[in-house]
């Protein structure tokens, strides 16, 4: 597989899997407004994943459609980061996962807006406005919880500590990332890491939360080595196409 195709699939898989995770909250949110908020974010992410899968299908150029790519691959052929497949947990954990990811996504897509790859640039410019809105939403909730009651503070600090080990993978470049940076298609992940760290430090500080000190980081999602969660996510996501291949609404 060509490096660019794989890179586009990583972006697409991140958006689809996180969108699917957030969709699990539909009908279960703590209050109606927040239920609606998460499903709105999910809708944006799934819309973004469609633009990216359409592009991946064109790059693949073997007659596959966006649906084939999303619905017919198994766990080891998904390249999303481990962060997005982590369990929803309580609402605080969902928000922290979103905050860590949105902040990364914000700086990543801001840079992708000026990609040398024309199509990726178009998709990024469309997506960035939505991502900026998500990033504001999740950061505000981190502050509200962190600087809220002692229970909300404790729960959200626990989520920060839990999810910390999944942040490193987003910024650790492998040969695909390096090739994309070299070609001017994607930004240097070290630069994104620095921007991310500055923003996350600032928000955690306002939220009276502590930044974890541990430097142990999980990795594997980007090359198809996933936690056990992804299989369950795909089982639900892909059920209809697996049970009734080629079915249409």
């Amino acid at each position: 597989m060509e490096a660019k195709e794989k890179y586009v699939l990583r972006l697409a898989d991140n958006a689809l899997i996180l969108g699917q995770r957030l969709g699990e909250w539909c009908g279960h949110g703590p209050i109606l407004e927040q239920d609606i908020a998460l499903t709105n974010v999910a809708l944006d992410l799934i819309g973004q994943s469609r633009m990216l899968y359409q592009y991946a299908a064109e790059l693949k150029n073997d007659g596959s459609t966006e649906d084939d790519i999303a619905m017919k691959r198994d766990v080891f052929d998904f390249y999303n980061v481990l962060m997005v497949e982590q369990e929803n947990g309580d609402w605080g954990k969902t928000i922290v996962r979103q905050f860590f990811y949105d902040t990364y996504n914000y700086f990543l897509y801001e840079a992708l807006c000026t990609s040398t790859d024309q199509r990726l640039g178009e998709i990024a410019r469309k997506s960035f406005k939505e991502i900026a809105y998500h990033a504001q939403f999740s950061a505000e909730w981190v502050i509200r919880f962190g600087d809220g009651t002692s229970e909300s503070h404790e729960r959200v600090q626990a989520a920060v500590d839990d999810l910390w080990e999944f942040t490193g993978e987003m910024f650790t470049p492998d040969e695909i990332d390096l090739a994309m940076t070299e070609a001017g298609i994607a930004p240097d992940l070290n630069q994104i890491a620095a921007q991310w760290k500055r923003k996350v430090t600032q928000i955690l500080d306002i939220a009276t939360l502590k930044m974890p000190e541990s430097s142990f980081m999980q990795k594997g999602g980007k090359v198809g080595e996933h936690s056990e969660y992804l299989g369950f996510i795909l089982a639900e996501l892909q059920f209809m196409q697996r049970a009734y291949p080629g079915m249409q609404w």
Binding site: E33, N40, V41, K129, A132, Y133, Q136, F137, A139, I203
Partner: peptide, 30 residues
């Protein structure tokens, strides 16, 4: 878009009584 973290919220006029004294309930709606 650039008002992320945390520019000012817009001054939104109530479509019912035209008051400018309005408040955001949720960033997301129907």
């Amino acid at each position: 878009d650039k008002r992320t973290l945390f520019g000012k919220s817009p001054d939104v006029r109530c479509p019912h009584c035209r008051s400018m004294d309005t408040q955001l309930v949720s960033q997301f709606g129907s």
